[in-house]
Design a protein around this nucleic acid. Structure first.
Length: 113
DNA sequence: GCAGTGACTAGTA
DNA sequence: ATACTAGCCACTG
């Protein structure tokens, strides 16, 4: 499938997602940039899509550039991500999105809050 | 080595 | 606000 598992870029993506602190979220584009391939946001999604459940990668901390959870209904990942984020202390907006301005774990911009 | 695909992003209507 | 188009990149077959 379009997943990942045997790519150099993939390894960097996993490392980047692992580097996201608890209670923080990052966008696909940010992860791609941190992986060294800005613009590969789509590829990042493919990587996380093939992530095994036993993976130690906090994939739930990765949302789209608007802070919305954009995962296919296949499976129950979406509500799960909401729950995991809530467990991390990330409260979602009434629109169901994360205030990136506050929880956004930026690899480039950093607001000490 | 090309075609297809997708947990993206930006622009336009 | 939603819908659609078009680039973008990496991985699979």
């Amino acid at each position: 499938m379009t997943g990942a598992g045997s790519g150099e870029f993939t390894g960097r993506v996993l490392a980047a997602v692992r580097s996201v602190a608890t209670g923080r979220v990052a966008s696909y584009g940010a992860v791609a940039a941190a992986a060294g391939r800005p613009g590969a946001a789509r590829a990042v999604g493919s990587v996380l899509s093939s992530l095994p459940d036993e993976s130690d990668v906090p994939w739930w901390r990765v949302v789209n550039y608007r802070g919305e959870i954009t995962i296919p209904r296949s499976g129950h990942a979406a509500p799960l991500q909401r729950a995991l984020l809530a467990a991390e202390g990330v409260e979602l907006d009434d629109d169901g999105r994360v205030p990136m301005a506050r929880y956004g774990c930026a690899f480039q911009e950093d607001r000490d809050d």
